[in-house]
């Protein structure tokens, strides 16, 4: 499959510090690719490199098969870009501003701008500098979507939007994907990426530390299980669950002949279900996996993920 974006050893050094230390990733055409990472990880810098707003110190970037620097305006017309933070100070209305960018970036289907504005609930006739953050964000989205570009680079697209508009945005992303367009978006929060993205890359300290498909993350993610059962002692229940692979953090509470047990499950759930089959359950909750947790594990550096040292807990006594 063709690649909409690929970078190799992308490095960017500013005067005082290096922001990207060799970022490698590729985005397949027609996919939705999410980058998540903490602030200062280099998400925005990477995106700016794709648009030749920032020029990398070294490394190779290909966007829609071209070097952004050589691709020039023709290439950027094929890209829709949403800035992480939109500053609009001029005394112009949203409509005028969009007409300007329409003149710059080429054909927009008639009625497209109004259609998008209506979907997002944006008033185009207000002066841009008077818009709230959310409304500015909507304006930014409209300008990134209006000319139906092949590639959309969206820096924290849902920031400042209310949940309903976020849903609308997710729908817009899916529609674009159905038309075969590529979407590259960033976020702090996995939950908004996981709704739309096929693949998630985790960027930390200027490096891609993991690229995972969302379904892959789901498999590796930790679920929580909680059940109540009759006719078993707390000890036996603990032992039973403890023997199931991937189960941890078992906590059992015994009260009046029944026990309530909660635990975490990592990986496949089949063994757990088999173990639970032997019990006389009165209640069972198996939660949806929290991908955020799976990703946070990747966020945190290796020493942080070592299980709790009991010494520390003892010291607290």
């Amino acid at each position: 499959m063709a690649q909409a974006i690929s970078t190799r050893s992308l490095t960017k050094k500013f005067v005082r510090r290096e922001v990207l230390h060799g970022v490698d990733f590729s985005v397949e055409a027609g996919s939705v690719f999410g980058v998540i990472g903490p602030n200062g990880a280099g998400k925005t810098t990477t995106m700016r490199c794709l648009l030749d707003i920032i020029r990398p110190t070294s490394g190779e970037v290909r966007v829609l098969g071209k070097d952004p620097r050589a691709g020039g305006p023709e290439l950027r017309r094929r890209i829709g870009y949403l800035l992480g933070e939109l500053f609009l100070e001029g005394r112009v209305t949203g409509r005028t501003l969009l007409a300007h960018y329409q003149a710059v970036s080429g054909p927009v289907a008639p009625g497209r701008i109004d259609g998008l504005a209506e979907r997002l609930g944006l008033d185009l006739d207000r002066h841009t500098r008077k818009l709230s953050k959310g409304n500015k964000q909507k304006l930014g989205l409209v300008q990134a979507f209006m000319h139906d570009p092949e590639l959309r680079v969206l820096d924290e697209p849902t920031s400042g939007l209310d949940p309903l508009v976020q849903q609308e945005f997710h729908a817009m992303v899916r529609e674009a994907q159905h038309r075969g367009q590529t979407i590259f978006l960033s976020s702090h929060v996995l939950s908004e990426v996981q709704q739309t993205a096929d693949t998630v890359a985790i960027l930390r300290d200027g490096r891609i530390i993991a690229v995972e498909s969302v379904s892959g993350l789901r498999e590796g993610a930790v679920r929580r299980v909680r059940f109540t059962a009759n006719g078993i002692t707390a000890h036996d229940a603990g032992a039973l669950l403890g023997a199931v692979p991937g189960v941890g953090h078992v906590e059992v509470l015994e009260s009046g002949g029944s026990i309530t047990l909660s635990a975490t499950v990592e990986g496949a759930i089949q063994p757990l279900v088999r173990a639970l089959g032997t019990l006389e359950l009165t209640d069972l909750v198996l939660e949806e996996p929290d991908l955020e947790e799976a990703v946070l594990k990747m966020y945190s550096s290796p020493e942080d993920t070592v299980p709790a040292v009991s010494g520390a807990a003892e010291a607290a006594r």
Partner: peptide, 14 residues
Amino acid sequence: ESGQLELTLAHGVT
């Protein structure tokens, strides 16, 4: 400085 140039440069201009 006001941050507006970035948006312009992201469009089809040199």
